[in-house]
Design a protein around this nucleic acid. Structure first.
Length: 205
DNA sequence: CGAATGATATACT
DNA sequence: GTATATCATTCGA
């Protein structure tokens, strides 16, 4: 079940960020369909958030996607090497986004592993935002693509993630953001609980 | 711990 | 237009 448009268009990016835990991020790329269980997210709260690319209302060719309607993919290149995948939220004109920071394999394991160049099947296959995008075949050319299409989308796995299993803390790698670097906008679904939910890892994509 | 690596933003001519 | 500093990171020593 793909998440409906109104899921993304709500105004509270923190709520959306929490609710994305336990959802499935899916891609169909080069003929391979893969799904991963989202275990870690970070919220970027728009023009007032010093950690956001849209801080101060900055509008550039890169960040323009964030000003679009909720439900778009925002992908950009970080450190010249890594493609980072974000979900645009809120209504058009308000540049909120949620960074997907980590995930567990759910289906298409063989393809995920091949793209990563690693044999891991657990939390070490996609332990960071760059690795999640790499495993799913996500690159900057997907930036601006709708999550209601057939290339990249997010599904409800029918999993309930109790708030007691969610840890909140400061975001990673945003020391430049001054005071805002301390905001508890990072959400982690403890992988012990996440592991228990996913299907058998023997998967022959 | 530190190198890798390139688009992007910003500040210049 | 051209220059340069800066990254929402990863991997292997």
């Amino acid at each position: 079940m793909k998440l409906p448009p109104h899921f993304y268009c709500r105004s509270d990016v923190l709520t959306i960020s929490r609710e994305l835990l336990g959802k499935l991020l899916c891609t169909r790329h080069a003929g391979h369909e893969c799904k991963v269980l989202i275990t870690e997210t970070e919220a970027y709260a728009g023009i007032g958030d010093r950690a956001s690319h849209a801080y101060g209302g900055r509008r550039t060719a890169r960040t323009e996607v964030m000003y679009g309607e909720g439900g778009l993919a925002y992908v950009y290149l970080c450190y010249g090497i890594h493609h980072l995948f974000n979900v645009v939220t809120n209504v058009a004109g308000i540049p909120h986004a949620v960074l997907i920071r980590a995930a567990l394999p759910y289906s298409g394991l063989a393809t995920l592993q091949k793209r990563r160049g690693r044999d891991e099947a657990g939390p070490n296959l996609m332990p960071g935002p760059g690795t999640v995008a790499q495993a799913l075949g996500i690159t900057t050319v997907m930036s601006g693509v709708s999550l209601h299409g057939a290339e990249v989308w997010i599904e409800d796995a029918g999993v309930d993630v109790p708030s007691a299993q969610i840890l909140a803390g400061p975001r990673i790698g945003v020391d430049y953001a001054g005071e805002d670097a301390r905001l508890p906008y990072r959400y982690v679904w403890s992988s012990a609980f996440a592991e228990a939910v996913r299907p058998c890892r023997a998967d022959t994509a």
